[in-house]
């Protein structure tokens, strides 16, 4: 555990909780892509199956349970409790265009051709692109609530911090996981355009709105 890994995990946790609280407090999931949230629930489910097979640390187990629990709670709030506020017409990204290629790639390129390992690989690849329905939705409506941009910033920051974590681990532990690193770079790059808008607009007190 190093400082980048820890702050990355906490940033991820902050993102998840910001989103849950935003929906809960406003009693609305307007502007939130339910499809991205379903993909994240799928990511955690397929990645954390090792909860049943191996114990790494109390920290590891607790965080996994919190992530999975919050992911399903978010999906429940969007598709059940506050379904009336869900903006399905603007959430029109075709997720099969992500899930099918990612599924194929995880079968082809993995560390070990075993069910658990392929599912772990699937979750890594899927996480790298799971935010696309949300970014697509923002590009379609041309704007995002400020609290939604804080969520996206924390979520993007988490993977960027993991990149520093992997550099640290490579130098100090000789740890090197090519699949996680490449997917993590892709994931972080997808946020770059958003990071730019966040710094130039949201941090200066303006609402995030895209030029028509």
């Amino acid at each position: 555990m190093n400082i980048f890994r820890l702050t990355g995990d906490l940033s991820h946790l902050a993102a998840i909780i910001i989103l849950l609280l935003k929906i809960w407090k406003s009693r609305s999931c307007a502007g939130i892509s339910g499809k991205s949230q379903i993909l994240f629930a799928l990511v955690f489910t397929t990645r954390y199956l090792d909860l049943f097979t191996s114990f790494i640390s109390l920290y590891n187990t607790c965080m996994k349970l919190i992530y999975i629990g919050c992911a399903y709670a978010t999906v429940y709030l969007i598709y059940a409790k506050f379904r009336a506020t869900y903006d399905g017409n603007h959430d029109s990204f075709r997720v099969e265009f992500l899930v099918v290629p990612v599924g194929g790639l995880s079968v082809l390129i993995n560390h070990d051709f075993s069910p658990l390992e392929i599912l772990w690989t699937f979750s890594i690849y899927l996480e790298s692109v799971a935010i696309l329905p949300q970014l697509f939705m923002i590009s379609k409506t041309g704007e995002a609530e400020t609290i939604t941009t804080h969520y996206l910033f924390c979520l993007g920051l988490y993977r960027a911090l993991y990149l520093f974590n992997w550099i640290w681990r490579f130098y100090f532990e000789g740890f090197f996981d090519m699949i996680a690193i490449v997917a993590g770079v892709v994931q972080t790059v997808l946020y770059c355009d958003f990071f730019y808008l966040y710094v130039t607009k949201v941090l200066k007190g303006k609402k995030l709105s895209l030029p028509a």
């Binding site: 090792d50 191996s54 996994k64 974590n165 996680a180």
Partner: peptide, 10 residues
């Protein structure tokens, strides 16, 4: 191959 060694991250 030891998946625990590889997948100790979240």
């Amino acid at each position: 191959f030891d998946p625990v060694m590889w997948h100790d991250e979240l």
